[in-house]
Deep mutational scan, measured.
Amino acid sequence: MAEQVALSRTQVCGILREELFQGDAFHQSDTHIFIIMGASGDLAKKKIYPTIWWLFRDGLLPENTFIVGYARSRLTVADIRKQSEPFFKATPEEKLKLEDFFARNSYVAGQYDDAASYQRLNSHMNALHLGSQANRLFYLALPPTVYEAVTKNIHESCMSQIGWNRIIVEKPFGRDLQSSDRLSNHISSLFREDQIYRIDHYLGKEMVQNLMVLRFANRIFGPIWNRDNIACVILTFKEPFGTEGRGGYFDEFGIIRDVMQNHLLQMLCLVAMEKPASTNSDDVRDEKVKVLKCISEVQANNVVLGQYVGNPDGEGEATKGYLDDPTVPRGSTTATFAAVVLYVENERWDGVPFILRCGKALNERKAEVRLQFHDVAGDIFHQQCKRNELVIRVQPNEAVYTKMMTKKPGMFFNPEESELDLTYGNRYKNVKLPDAYERLILDVFCGSQMHFVRSDELREAWRIFTPLLHQIELEKPKPIPYIYGSRGPTEADELMKRVGFQYEGTYKWVNP
């Protein structure tokens, strides 16, 4: 592979701008107003304001973009700056750019259920340069409990009458099928589907988006991507930290609602779906819905739930269990780990287990898709061969690698495990991989909904998990304890083995 010439960040961002501006969906010269509902909250200060700053800094926003914060707290732009700027990672050389960014910011205080507050917000936006005809993007960085009041008031008082209007809704989209349907029906009564952007930030990850290209742009994968060759698929999300004093919020939802029903299920769809007619948003989402419709409700015998306990040999936070978090209700049975087996009941995947695993306070930070292939028929190497695996590593250190057998150097035919490896950090030294939120917010500006969740996708996802969630809430089974920093409950490994996964433990990928 030829040595790549190092590029400056300015040059890299210039390439990104060229890609972005050559499309006809990006209205570079139009006025846009980006409204952050819930501007005083954690999500706004840690993710949304920093993301908008990065896009502005790199010249990736339309030229005439204004940012308006809205929340109940009586704040000023200076207050917003004070709480969000520490997350910007701005350099001293960017000081003038930073001043320009905050000059485009404003803030309006108001209630979430008060019509007069929204009329005041609308008047404020109209007073901005060309504000009355601007395109408006409303980001709901809010708890779902206020979605209905907020969307109703936005629709009645704050819509642009000339430009387009788009609304970005953060997960969780309800707690179960019934609450999700209620919320979807409410929002759909106010906005068209092409105006609604239900954001799952995992769909903005580079390697998640790469799944489609790997599958449908490489001839070698087509013939082997089926039940005849693939023994099982494992989708993993692991965090090495616990709730760390923020367990009160987590306890309301648990690990299945927080990660599995959305992030992991979306990745499953991209692995299992048929080739779409095109890369058009609805063509892709149509195929994802077909996959979900082929999955039956989760069966309790295919589920393992766990909850982390303190590690007596650990240090600091590792010595504390979930129930030691003062914000967690006493005696909570909320799971911090889950392993679930699903089956896609169609011709391509009949009988292939899709194993979804996620948890907190585990032994490493990792998100990946792992396809394990069947054993080689007619073994001539005296059971020395391990199964081939194709691994798409989402985070950290984005990579695609194939675990395969090669001859060990020497005189004899002794096979050993090795890999074919594409590590993004080595291959793409001159490429700026956008943060997931950067990519998705740019998608909203461009009107691309491919990486957002459609209402029928959402409904099918909740259909699969709601009976299990209701059973857990009714019966309150005690989750299996696992030690902070471990791989999780051993019962999860036993479940995976029972459905056909072979864990060798003899080879570990190392970032080159």
Rank of each mutant, 00 (worst) to 15 (best):
G222F: 07
N64S: 07
T10N: 08
R175K: 08
L203W: 15
F102L: 06
Q195I: 04
M37T: 02
V5C: 11
M212R: 01
E252L: 12
K45E: 04
L43C: 09
T31W: 10
F221S: 13
H155G: 06
P172S: 05
Y118T: 02
S188H: 09
P144A: 05
N218T: 01
L203I: 15
Y202C: 15
S8K: 13
S189A: 06
I35C: 11
G23I: 11
D100W: 03
R72T: 06
F88P: 00
D113M: 06
I255C: 12
F253E: 10
G254Y: 00
G23F: 15
Y107N: 02
P86C: 06
N122I: 05
F26Q: 08
R72M: 11
F250Y: 13
D251G: 07
R74N: 08
K45S: 10
D113N: 04
N153V: 02
R81D: 01
L61E: 00
N122A: 12
D100L: 08
G59Y: 02
T151N: 10
H124C: 08
I187P: 03
L61N: 00
F250H: 11
V213W: 06
A127H: 10
L55T: 05
L98C: 04
F21R: 12
G131C: 05
Q209Y: 11
S180K: 04
G163R: 02
M207P: 07
S106F: 12
A25F: 11
I196K: 00
Y70L: 06
E3T: 07
Q11L: 06
E18M: 07
D251H: 11
V150I: 10
D113I: 02
L211W: 09
I33H: 05
Y118A: 05
L60V: 04
S189M: 09
R215I: 00
D58W: 07
L190M: 08
N218V: 00
R257E: 07
A71Q: 02
A141T: 05
Q178T: 10
N153K: 13
H155C: 06
F191M: 05
N153Y: 06
F101D: 00
Y107H: 03
E63S: 09
I196F: 01
R182Q: 12
N105D: 00
C232F: 02
T236R: 02
E156W: 07
L75W: 13
M37R: 01
L61T: 03
M159K: 11
E148T: 14
R81F: 05
L203A: 15
L177I: 09
R182S: 03
Y49E: 00
L43R: 09
S84Q: 06
K238A: 10
Q133Y: 12
F216N: 12
L235F: 08
Q209T: 12
P144G: 14
L214T: 15
G247K: 13
I187N: 09
I33S: 02
R81T: 02
C232I: 02
F21D: 07
Y118E: 00
I48G: 01
I167C: 08
N64W: 03
G163Q: 00
L190F: 12
L183R: 13
F88K: 01
E63I: 10
N218W: 00
D176E: 08
V146W: 10
I36M: 03
G245R: 09
K152P: 07
K47T: 13
D114G: 06
H186C: 11
D58T: 09
H186Q: 13
Y107Q: 07
Q83E: 05
F173I: 05
Q195T: 12
I168M: 08
P240N: 11
Y249I: 15
A90S: 03
A25K: 07
T151A: 08
S106C: 05
N218P: 01
V12Q: 08
I256W: 00
I199P: 15
K82M: 08
A116M: 11
R72N: 10
Q161V: 13
C232E: 06
R120Y: 10
N153P: 00
Q4G: 11
W225I: 05
I255W: 01
S29L: 12
F173E: 03
L183V: 10
G110N: 03
Q4P: 11
G59K: 04
F250K: 03
D100E: 01
L177W: 10
L60G: 05
G14H: 08
S29P: 10
I256E: 00
C232G: 11
R246M: 09
I196H: 00
R219Q: 14
E3I: 01
I80H: 02
I154C: 05
P240D: 10
A78T: 03
R57K: 12
L96E: 12
H32M: 15
D176V: 05
R175S: 09
F87V: 03
A141W: 00
P86R: 06
R257M: 07
R175H: 14
I162F: 10
F253P: 13
E156I: 08
F173D: 02
G222P: 06
C13T: 11
Q111M: 04
L177Q: 08
R72C: 11
S29E: 14
Q209S: 14
E94Q: 07
E156N: 07
F237P: 01
G14W: 06
A39M: 02
D114T: 08
E252S: 07
L203Q: 14
F21Y: 05
Q22L: 15
N210T: 11
F102D: 01
D42K: 13
K95M: 14
K45C: 11
V208S: 14
L7F: 04
T10I: 06
I196A: 00
V108L: 05
I35F: 01
R198M: 02
L214H: 13
I80P: 00
F66V: 06
Y112R: 03
L98E: 02
I224E: 03
S29V: 07
G69T: 06
W164F: 10
R17Q: 08
H129Y: 03
V213R: 06
I256P: 00
I256L: 14
P143S: 04
A134D: 05
D194E: 09
V213N: 13
